[in-house]
Each structure stands twice: as structure tokens, then as C-alpha cells.
């Protein structure tokens, strides 16, 4: 499992580095439906500001670099959060805690 973990983490960084900057900028399914049916404007930004809004680094002029930075930060945050959570939710023998 150790090497599977390494492969997955390596793949995450490769995807962020080489694929994410070239992702299609077309709206996704839900965004397209919202546009076609005319309710896209109902979207509201929550009062709380985002650190990396829409996977960009505010103020950074290089958009693709911003995407990569946002991706690496996001990957690290998700990984760290889940590593912590796994410690609390599962005992070392794999049984879910609190049963």
C-alpha cells in the first residue's frame, strides 16, 4: 500500500502540474444548464473571502502559474485534512471508532 500511496500522490502533482493549467474553460454541466435556463445570475459569493478564488492566486498576473499553485495548495490541504481525520475515524486495525 505504501507504493500505491506514493503513486497516487505523484499522480496528483503531475495532474496539477501538466493537466490542470490546460483544462477546458467551458462551463461544466450544471453551469451550462444554469446559463441556458437563465438562472446563472442567482449565484452569490459568500461573504467569507476565499484564499484561492476559482483556483487562482489573486494579484498574480500569470494565470496558469496561479492554477498550479492553487492546485498544489489544495492537494496539500485535502491530504493533510484526511490524514488527520483518518487517525480519529479509524483505529489502527481498521475498525471505525465509536461503534
Amino acid at each position: 500500500m505504501k507504493h500505491k500511496k506514493k503513486i497516487l500522490l505523484l499522480a496528483s502533482f503531475l495532474v496539477v502540474l501538466f493537466l490542470a493549467p490546460f483544462a477546458s474553460s467551458w462551463p461544466d454541466g450544471l453551469e451550462r444548464v444554469a446559463e441556458d435556463l437563465g438562472f446563472a445570475d442567482a449565484a452569490r459569493e459568500f461573504a467569507l473571502p476565499a484564499l484561492l478564488p476559482d483556483y487562482t492566486v489573486p494579484g498574480l498576473p500569470w494565470e496558469k502559474l496561479g492554477t498550479v499553485i492553487a492546485g498544489i495548495v489544495g492537494v496539500a490541504l485535502v491530504y493533510g485534512f484526511l490524514q488527520l481525520l483518518a487517525k480519529f475515524l479509524w483505529r489502527a486495525d481498521g475498525v471505525a471508532r465509536g461503534r
Binding site: 497516487l8 500522490l9 485535502v78 491530504y79 485534512f81
Partner: peptide
């Protein structure tokens, strides 16, 4: 141990 790595990959 794969939980975190799987989340990281799905995020990416």
C-alpha cells in the same frame, strides 16, 4: 493510509 492520497488525487 490511502485515504489522504485518494482525496489529493480526486481534488487534482
Amino acid at each position: 493510509p490511502l485515504l489522504g492520497a485518494m482525496g489529493a488525487f480526486i481534488f487534482a
